[in-house]
Simulated scan of single mutants.
Amino acid sequence: MTSQYATFGLVPATRAGGVLADGAYQAHRDFLDFAVDGSPLLARLADLDAVSPLAFDLGPSDFAEQVRTLLPEAEKPLEGSRRVIYGCPECAGLACGEPVCGGLASVGFACGAVTAVIERDGPDIVWRDFGRQTGRTPDAERDGYHDIGPYRFRGEEYRAALERLLPADGAPAPELPAGPRALLIGPRAALLARLAAALRRIGISAEITLDAVHAHADELRKYGVVVFGRTIGPDERDAVLNALAVARSEAVCVTVLAPIVPLLVAQVEQALDRTPDRRRLQRLTAVAGGAEAEVEVASACRVRLVAHRLDRLSRPRTRALFDAVLAPGTHRIPLETRAVRGRSFLTAHTSEAVLVAPVAR
């Protein structure tokens, strides 16, 4: 077992939601990831779509219970001193029973969790024997992450990072970040209504209004993204932007690109991304007249590429083009001509981020 120390910390992370090419929904989840030696641990599992147990959408008591399960003296929930490190972002269970689950099953396995042994070694805390688990015990040879860990943490540092998330004696529980909210500006027409319904379906609160200018400043500051409908003119847009500035809102403003709901959901997810410097998906562009997509990734991750367009009858068309793990660097991916003809757009998805790019002609 390693005798070298690793540092332990917690960093905000997001599992980006969306509407998939087949019409299925993928939940948006905000959570705390484990930072080992300053780097998010989940990023070392390149093809994994998962969240830690420390998800912000849990109630205060459930969140505190999940924090305690990561302390070695807590009651052990799994055999062999194993604890859940990452779980399915859709069902949060070891085995949800669904034949197609948007989380861990999306990499070719039954829905499950990543677990590890968490134990005390003197004053230290050790994480070891990482593996995928769908039943009572994992198969170490088949499902083990042999290149991950073991990690030895100083007990004082480890406990301090977790215990600051727990309520002190007689004190209220620490306040968790509020969930993402989107303000849609425009008439309550079919497009914005469908977009609001899709955002709520994946866990993003969405409200529609025709008058954001006279909204209270405290209310405006609650929104992470403001979406301008297609009927909003320059004067109305400028008035809203001024109201947001006066309210000192940090909301990102976007304009509807096309009446295609999955594309608009991707726009909202991109606007909600507050950590572009930490994301693995760095850049997406369409090159060579739309014949290729250029994708840049900072570290190995699974990338899904989807094309969106309107056909000659203004009907939305969505097609999945690419789905694979990419190594760090810049990659050129050929595009199907039929999928990007006319006015079209590309979306690139990883488990943590979404990018949107027009296909220039």
Rank of each mutant, 00 (worst) to 15 (best):
E141H: 06
R142E: 15
D143Y: 09
D143N: 05
Y145I: 07
H146M: 11
D147F: 11
D147L: 14
R152C: 06
R152D: 05
F153Q: 06
F153E: 02
F153T: 07
G155A: 14
E156L: 11
E156G: 03
E157A: 12
Y158P: 01
A160M: 13
A161R: 14
R164G: 09
L165A: 01
L166R: 00
P167R: 08
A168Y: 02
P172S: 05
E175S: 14
E175T: 15
L176R: 12
P177T: 15
P180Q: 10
P180H: 11
L183V: 01
L184G: 02
L184C: 05
G186V: 11
P187R: 12
A189D: 15
A189K: 14
A193K: 09
A193P: 05
L195Y: 10
L195H: 05
A197P: 14
I202T: 01
G203C: 07
A206Y: 06
E207P: 04
I208M: 09
A212K: 01
H214K: 08
A215M: 04
H216N: 10
H216D: 13
A217I: 01
D218Q: 13
V225E: 07
V227A: 08
G229V: 07
I232W: 02
I232K: 07
R237K: 11
D238T: 12
A239M: 10
A243L: 08
L244N: 04
A245S: 09
R248E: 13
A251T: 11
V252P: 08
V252T: 15
V252M: 11
